[in-house]
Amino acid sequence: MLPYDLIPASDQALNVTFPNRIDPKINLIISHLATDLKQHEAIVALLPAFRTLTIFYQPLVISLEQLKLLVDKTIKNLDFQQTEQVKVVHIPVCYTSEFGPDLERVALHAQLSVTDLIQRHSRPNYLIYMLGFLPGFAYLGGLDAQLAMPRLASPRATIPAGSVGIAGEQTGMYPVVSPGGWQLIGRTPLKLFDVHRAQPLFYQAGDYIHFDVIDQTEFARIAAAPETYQIQITQE
């Protein structure tokens, strides 16, 4: 087990803090810990991040000392295999200049053809380290280092929902309309975040994202009725 600290973060929150790095192993522990603690009645909410799990609790129901003991015990009893199957959520993405205005520039920067760029971007399963910044915004790990690209010098005022982009060594999707400085290379026709759906999001921290390449015809077909699209989820 990795070393960790229990740091009281407020009078109603405790941080479980792991070593200061982006590490799939830390992510796995945090995801499992969050799942195991979810059931406890004194715990109000859990907020997983790169290397911290913030536990919001009711101090009048469980004392800080009791909570620390509970966390220690839960971590000790965590039962998971690092080789276990992972959930991969397949997001259809259309990579064209129309949907990804920076596509050719990113390819040029990576010294690749557009076809090779698309091929390399849609190859990995990207780990969702955490959600934050916007509703459903996933911080993904696993971008091919050659595809890394600095942010736009001046951010766009509006980035359409569903846009897929690259910023530094990260890749990600905009679930909702937002300003932003990411280099855009494609777009998904799916509504990534929809409060009117029984399940507003298709994924959570600890899951993986795979981008499935679709063409403009397929994009138009899905975009016409995104609510009827059957999202593909595989165990790998």
Binding site: L47, A49, F50, R51, T52, G132, F133
Partner: peptide, 10 residues
């Protein structure tokens, strides 16, 4: 600092 959870009143 790697992004982490925020607090009401932080």
């Amino acid at each position: 600092l790697l992004s982490e959870g925020t607090f009401f009143g932080g």
